[in-house]
Amino acid sequence: MDNEVFTTLVGFLLLILLLLFFLPGRGLFSKWKRALLDSKRVRIEDALKHLYDCEYNNTGCSLDSISGNLSLKRDEAAGLIQKLQSLGLVSLGRDKIELTGEGRNYALRIIRVHRLWERYLADETSIHASEWHERAEDVEHILSAEQADELAAQIGNPLTDPHGDPIPSSEGKMPVKQGVPITQFCVNDHVKIIHLEDEPKTIFAQLVAEGLYVGQHLRIIEISEERVKFEVDDEVIVLAPIIAANISVVKFDETNRVRRNLKKLSELKVGDGGLVVGISNLIRGQQRRRLLDLGVVPGTKIKAEIQSLGGDPTGYRIRGATIAIRKKQASQIFIKEINE
């Protein structure tokens, strides 16, 4: 039956064509959508952001750093600066490029959207950490200030993005910079991570892969030219100083609260119990509030009661109720064993 074979083939061909067109991320449709983004405005906004970063971190900005950061040729970068100047967004000093008030406000607006979006992705969407920055880079040029305010309200007006950077308020207010690179501390200092620099990406990816996150408590073991060694959640991590310099920390004095000899809730065997010590900051937003509401707060007695037939989730007895929690979350809840 040639006819049959023919229609079958045509049908499958049609399906494949449809797929090609609408393939998310790579299909023609999404390519076309991306091309709609106004590339000139994007460049201006990226340059402003970079200038603001320099200002915030007190590192001077130069034509080179701009061309490097935006991957532009030198003369393109120079053209861009001129454009910014003609728009009244920057002023050129002797060998300094500075933001004007208007330029700073513009930059803060972009940064606000960027950080809010990262926060939104982290809290509400379960998109992997390595993708937040990239996606926010796109969205920051699309969302209006009003939309950003709406988003902020919806996710509870967060103060910081998931990397620990403060989110400017809608009036463009920003708290003063806190924290210094971990490399400037001494052996045996107890410190708390308040920021993980998300650029360059490869370094950030490495930090994430090491399991580091904002809010974590560390004890420094060794600081030298060759390496930085510290203890965190019962693990010892060794990093090259270049990489460690991307971790900003503040001194942390409540030494008794540094988590030592802790177990993860996920390690409890059915029938065993423990005492909750804390929830890791990797659980944020809605998920965190939900766990707290269910009674997972420091000092709560918790007992593994039943395991689902797939081995995950596990039902835990918490304050008189049985609550099922997935392994992924349970491994972010720290407990102390109790001997009864």
Binding site: I155, Q286, R289, R290, D293
Partner: peptide, 8 residues
């Protein structure tokens, strides 16, 4: 509802 403080 488990709480009034959440934004869920």
């Amino acid at each position: 509802t488990y709480s009034l403080l959440s934004t869920s």
